[in-house]
């Protein structure tokens, strides 16, 4: 029987709640803006010459956009952490940290099925699969580090309390140079993550057709009736079936 790949009894499941969707798109926009402005700050194009400094402020504006966006990014992230404790079961924090054995088994499953493609049974699940979750956990760590180093080097030119909460990170790293270095290297992590993330959304929509792309807009996914109710261990069993 072709149970795993035929889609006869589709069921709608409300996966991503409104705050999660808002978080996702605000976050995406912030990261795009931060990466572009950050790259310009790190390696500014010198397209102007033969003029006086008093005529322009474009580089200051780029930095201003970077800083404002950083504040939005930070509070958006704080909101998401809060939602990790009050949101639905797909949004909760325990999805993102593989503490259970089945999560590690699922990670292996996903690697075999989706990355190496040596196995043909799809990994059934409604929310994130365990490998995706773990990757998001790493991005959360990168968010934290990026906030720490970013606000840390920003603190010296600010009197406000929020950036100064992070000023201790600079002496810990030995100085602004290293903080800035780490901040810059992590930017590349976000760029690479972005590329792979968008590709994988395309990939999953192409193969599984659960409406993963539109789910981040409307919140709904379409899965087979039985799949929606499976727990982790049942999913592993189903994936490991011959």
């Amino acid at each position: 029987m072709e149970r795993t790949i035929s889609k006869q009894r589709l069921k709608e499941v409300y996966v991503w709640e409104l705050p999660v969707r808002f978080y996702h798109w605000i976050n995406a926009l912030c990261i795009v803006v931060l990466a572009i402005t950050g790259y310009i700050i790190g390696r500014p194009p010198a397209f102007q010459s033969a003029t006086e400094a008093s005529y322009g402020y474009w580089f200051g504006t780029v930095r201003f956009i970077h800083f404002v966006t950083a504040f939005v990014f930070f509070f958006n992230f704080v909101m998401r952490i809060y939602w990790g404790f009050v949101g639905n079961k797909y949004a909760r924090w325990y999805n993102f940290i593989p503490l259970k054995k089945w999560q590690w088994k699922e990670i292996i499953c996903v690697i075999k099925v989706d990355i190496l493609q040596i196995k043909d049974r799809p990994v059934l699940g409604v929310g994130h699969n365990s490998l995706a979750s773990l990757t998001y956990f790493f991005t959360f760590l990168a968010f934290v580090l990026q906030c720490f180093t970013g606000f840390g080097i920003y603190a010296a030119m600010s009197e406000s309390w929020l950036p100064n909460l992070f000023s201790w990170i600079v002496p810990l790293l030995g100085g602004d140079f290293m903080a800035r270095q780490i901040h810059h290297i992590l930017m590349w992590f976000f760029i690479l993550f972005g590329i792979v993330h968008v590709y994988l959304v395309f990939y999953h929509d192409y193969i599984e057709r659960t409406g993963v792309t539109s789910s981040m807009i409307g919140g709904w996914k379409f899965v087979e009736g039985d799949d929606a109710d499976m727990d982790g261990n049942e999913r592993i069993r189903s994936c490991n079936q011959k």
């Binding site: 010459s49 402020y57 474009w58 200051g60 780029v62």
Partner: peptide, 11 residues
């Protein structure tokens, strides 16, 4: 510093 803010850099 004003040159920095105006994006005027030595190459």
């Amino acid at each position: 510093r004003p040159n920095y803010d105006a994006g005027l850099f030595v190459q």
